[in-house]
Amino acid sequence: MSDTIASPSTRRLAREQGVDIDALARKLGRTTISAEDISGSARPAASAGDTSYWDVDHSQYGPVTKEPMSRFAQVASKNLAAAQALIPAVTHHERADVSAIEALRKSWKAEAQARGVKLTALAFHVAALSRALRAFPRFNASLTPDGEDLVLKDYVHIGIAVDTPHGLMVPVIRDADRKGLWQIGAEIADLAGRAQARKVRQDEMGGASMTITNLGGIGGTAFTPIVNPPEVAILGITRTETVTHWDGDTPRPVPMVPLDLSYDHRVINGADAARFMTHYAGLIADPRNMLV
């Protein structure tokens, strides 16, 4: 006889739902398992709260068609919902002067062509972020699920969110802090290209220190990305804009890139985030700082 107390109907429900009743009892630290525990254990983290009012027959208002969510999209939506519901996240807004980066990219154009590498602004962001993470180790960390330990990482891998026809994919550039701009540029092009064709291997995803999500090529002035756990922060980038900068009485046009850092407030507080982004903006504004 099992030591777990559960009525016959509860045991049948558990079997139907594929729940191991003894394992569930151990996990919950209980001797008795009820039917509610079983339905609870099988319910996705996403649907906390009452969503019955979402269940609307839309066709009563006009013509509709239905398309199934792919397996991939369903998993992603569950994970996003869990991240949004469980992480107390704050988004910090900043912008950085990209004049120097733009000048460098122009002057290296010929060399880029010769190397066959397109040196994008994103390559500079990956380089800058990897250096910033070395300077601020708490941003390169993960909280254990029980919230009892912070795991600090002695490596820097940067995830790049790539928009593909089958959904969002996040391939990772390993050891970005030890790579130069040309190599980073080449790897971004390779991974992004293969992501479009869904040819990124499982071992080329996961394990990132932080993720960059870049809408710069499309538009936008700011957004609030959702942290991608177990990472503790995510950096959003929107389209560079020429703003008026005042040197004393003299107005000067300066191209500035908007930056949005969403971070897990359990690990990072607001002052740290502000310092981190000031440092980061400094690396972008004067890439020579990346060398020191």
């Binding site: 016959p8 045991r11 079997r15 139907e16 594929g18």
Partner: peptide, 24 residues
């Protein structure tokens, strides 16, 4: 369907006089 005999409790009864019955 997903089903299985979950229980080990199978009662035994001797319909003697008097009856003898046991389980577990």
């Amino acid at each position: 369907h997903r089903a299985a005999l979950e229980t080990t409790l199978i009662p035994s009864v001797a319909y003697t006089s008097p009856e003898l019955a046991w389980v577990g």
